[in-house]
Design a protein around this nucleic acid. Structure first.
Lengths: 333, 333
DNA sequence: TCCCACTCTGCACATATGTTCACGCGGCTT
DNA sequence: AAGCCGCGTGAACATATGTGCAGAGTGGGA
């Protein structure tokens, strides 16, 4: 029995490289030598269909990397302006203005997932927020082999699974798989009902360990929550917050949240009652991460984005074109 | 009249970015967001055909870069073995064994041209040999913007233009255009008839200037000449060498040449008479370049390649699979 | 040992992409 | 002003690529 299992394991370990080798060779022939798939099929003694599939595999598994370089003398005006005004490196994703919010999110997430590979590397501790944006990204990650990296969940989440929102554990797993990283779950709700419970929980040693990791991030990755957006298709729908909570947020002047921590337009968080029950790291902690990537899509999140910029939470911004334009067209900082 | 010319120039300079911007956007949409060309055409308010052309342009002009990464745990056995035995970083190009020599050369040259971008950078002085291999490469270069680089011709060449061999000046120009580099021609024949003429020429100040540059290369790029190969479709066909020259080479034990300088199987060059009349740099000079890339295709060049390796001329080798295999299968160093 | 579940293959079809061609629009010359 | 390039366009066609499907092979479990 044990032998069988070992054999099976070996079998897989041997079989995969075989496929990978073929995929690699097919990729060379296709992308470097411009052969047609038909010709490659002939060289590999297989069918054209299989070559098509091999190439898909090669792309999906990161064997083939496609990158786009703007000529340095033509660096998108918008990205440049964002850098000037906010000291943030922007990646603007072209999306037509008439696209629906869902399309927009998907397209930004797809591009973001592909850009992400540039930031992830070995020996990194990566903090990951939980939300619809991260969920969408998780579906499109391009694998990249790293060693000794770790993905740390930044904020809690329930187990609901509404449209487009993925279990936190599933989300973590996808990121972990894609980068060969260990995964640190944070099994708490998004918001505690009672601040005292949170306090108590925070004193647990297992929680301490996680908080400690959160304090030593190399990279943080998060979206922006906008509680008052027209289409609040996120955490706020899941029944996490009640009418009274919204009213409280409104009264406190909150314009958005990062990993369940809310802030005002000027980036301040003090005195926002709900934060006492939130599970994400406070901003001082978050800002310790040297690189902090924010993915935003949709004008509805503009106010939230402005606040996060004011709070100095962001070092790299991935954003759709319309929102970027709106950001830059505002009167002043 | 002058005004018109200036206007025309400005016109071009303005027009090209417009196209480049579109190409860039199309590339984003296609390669990052996986839109179909049809959809892109719609977003760009143009026809699908034009999008197809824009994307071709984006690829050909280096806006889009496609690279292939072997998983680090699976680095082609052959490349690894070459690194072990010859201390040379190899790039093995897969080519089926039954391919004709012409195919093989083309495919190696195509791949080599695409790999070359990784080596070329700003502020480099690049030495370039002249021959059929370099000619084939010159047809497939992917542009890359650099500043303050310089391409220096390593060896002279006549003006003939046999099949597949390009004027030296044309070849230089293509490399120069592709990388935005200045070009230093070396207007001499491949071989002088009389060593004394060479000596005299070498004392000219203009020649001195060029030799000086050759002594300070950052990068050298060359193929291998094999005078006794079955298909000597190179310099040797152009009437540069006479029967007596071949006999002399044979007597002296030459197995190949790099930039018109001949060497024996052990890499030595001393006492090979023809070298007195050759125009390329001696090997001590060539070896001063910290990086020396050699492009080889075809088993016929195997002996020549071995000699060049023995002479320590090569730091990076781009070679077709069959030849690489033959190289490694030899009994010992 | 047999059978099920799984994966992989190649065929045939549906799409997507590349290329040819005829046309129309400036810009330049005469 | 007329006429002649040279370039860029989109329609139509020719190829190349992606995918659903049914069958073959394989390993694991009863």
């Amino acid at each position: 029995m044990i032998d069988k299992e070992i054999l099976a394991t070996i079998d897989v370990d041997e079989a995969v490289p075989g496929k990978t080798r073929d995929a690699l060779r097919a990729a060379h022939l296709y992308y470097m030598q411009d052969l047609t798939m038909d010709a490659i099929a002939h060289e590999l003694h297989t069918s054209r269909s299989s070559v098509s599939r091999l190439l898909s595999h090669a792309r999906a598994s990161g064997l083939v990397e496609i990158s786009i370089h703007s000529p340095l003398d033509l660096p998108s005006r918008i990205e440049h302006e964002i850098l000037e005004r906010f000291e943030v490196q922007a990646h603007v994703i072209p999306v037509p203005d008439h696209a629906s919010d869902v399309d927009r999110l998907d397209r930004v997430a797809l591009s973001a997932a592909r850009i992400l590979g540039r930031f992830i590397d070995s020996n990194l501790t990566v903090g990951l927020a939980w939300g619809s944006t991260m969920g969408a990204m998780s579906r499109h990650l391009v694998p990249k082999a790293t060693h000794n990296s770790e993905i740390v969940q930044l904020n809690g989440a329930g187990n609901l699974r509404t449209t487009g929102i993925v279990y936190a554990s599933e989300l973590l797993r996808r990121f972990g798989d894609a980068f060969g990283a260990r995964v640190q779950q944070f099994p708490v709700p998004a918001f505690f009902d009672d601040p005292a419970t949170k306090q108590a929980f925070w004193r647990e040693r297992s929680t301490q360990r996680l908080l400690d990791l959160q304090g030593r991030l190399d990279l943080a990755l998060f979206g922006i929550g906008s509680p008052f957006a027209e289409v609040p298709s996120h955490v706020y729908q899941g029944g996490y917050l009640e009418r009274a909570d919204y009213e409280g947020l409104s009264r406190d002047g909150a314009v958005g949240d990062v990993a369940t921590v809310f802030y005002r337009a000027d980036g301040s968080t003090d005195g926002i009652a709900l934060n006492e029950r939130a599970t994400g790291p406070d901003f001082a902690t978050l800002r310790r991460a040297p690189r902090r990537i924010c993915v935003v899509s949709g004008r509805a999140k503009l106010a939230g984005l402005r606040g996060a910029l004011a709070a100095g939470l962001i070092t790299d911004l991935i954003v759709d074109e319309g929102t970027a334009r709106a950001l830059v067209e505002s009167p002043a900082d």
